[in-house]
């Protein structure tokens, strides 16, 4: 296909411009915004866009990582490196109540673990710092409940999301008015699809956590899902012997809740090729979605991203 004329933006450049517009709107209209940084590829793209929006300045808000203490070790290393390079302040939060209760995905299950360490942890962090706007990297193509999500998503004082009581969003005129204690979750990459994300990473050469690339890693198979044994907190059944396998991760989260896929894709183009030829949707590797019917929607209503 021939290149577009100079004045014509490609779909990616249009998406990029829309995201930049959203970042600037929030920085201008809110007192205390924050970017939720989850270390994954969507967060990496979001951070890249934020840097572009405020170039040559550093984005005028901090990064916030809600740590569940169960993230892959490589994720934490990557997080610290990227934050340092960006010049932005990195805030991390771990739910102290969860730590006191010794919450673990292995003993408490994914539902309790996610609720306490992620949902409650996030609310604590937002309240503690008094953030009035929080950027998140959710996309509308990810899951049915997200297809109707606004770009500016209103949250009550208790951080609740009411799908029936969202503000109509017209043109690119976002309503940023809130009362004290209320907040807005902002999704600058709402209109990006998984393929757009990968294509943009390729085009802009955005650095990713190495876990996205295939490498020999120690895994065990549990309930049909390959779990990487990232540290010795994982108690293995006698039958479970970690095996070195060529695997990679399509999404990243807590290692006990994230399924690895067999892969030999060691370059970005290998990954994109693999994704395009694959026949299952991205979130299937995430255990939290299939917990219960409409589970993402229920979590969102409670305050999860």
């Amino acid at each position: 296909m021939s290149p577009l004329p100079e004045h014509r933006l490609s779909h990616l450049r249009q998406l990029e411009a829309e995201s930049i517009h959203i970042f600037r709107e929030v920085a201008a209209e809110f007192n205390n915004p924050v970017m939720m940084y989850s270390i994954g590829k969507d967060s990496s793209v979001m951070l890249h866009l934020a840097k572009k929006a405020f170039f040559p300045a550093v984005p005028p808000f901090p990064l916030l990582h809600v740590d569940t203490t169960w993230k892959f070790r490589e994720m934490i290393e990557f997080r610290d490196k990227v934050a340092k390079e960006s010049g932005m302040e990195l805030l991390t939060h771990i739910n102290p109540e969860g730590v006191a209760m010794n919450i673990s995905p292995f003993t408490h299950g994914s539902k309790v673990h996610t609720d306490v360490m992620k949902t409650q942890g996030l609310k604590q962090a937002l309240d503690q710092h008094g953030f009035d706007a929080a950027f998140g990297g959710a996309r509308r193509d990810e899951e049915a409940s997200r297809a109707k999500e606004r770009i500016f998503s209103f949250r009550s004082e208790k951080h609740r999301w009411d799908p029936k009581n969202q503000r109509p969003e017209l043109w690119s005129l976002y309503n940023s008015r809130i009362k004290k204690g209320e907040s807005i979750r902002v999704f600058p990459i709402s209109n990006w699809t998984e393929l757009d994300i990968w294509q943009y990473i390729y085009l802009e050469q955005i650095e990713l956590v190495p876990l996205y690339y295939a490498a020999p890693r120690p895994v065990v198979e549990r309930d049909g899902i390959k779990i990487m044994v990232d540290d010795d907190r994982m108690e293995l059944e006698p039958s479970e012997v970690p095996k070195e396998e060529w695997v990679r991760f399509r999404t990243l989260g807590c290692y006990p809740l994230t399924g690895a896929v067999e892969s030999r894709a060691t370059t970005l183009t290998d990954i994109i090729q693999e994704i395009l030829l694959t026949k299952t949707s991205e979130r299937q590797g995430r255990l939290i979605d299939s917990d219960q019917a409409g589970s993402m929607e229920a979590k969102k209503a409670e305050g999860y991203f």
Binding site: M1, L4, L9, S10, H11, L195, Q199, Y202, T269
Partner: peptide
Amino acid sequence: IQEDIHAYLDQHEHKTL
């Protein structure tokens, strides 16, 4: 996609919306 992923990506870089 299978034959030449680079050519494919190049093609998609010039898509409109």
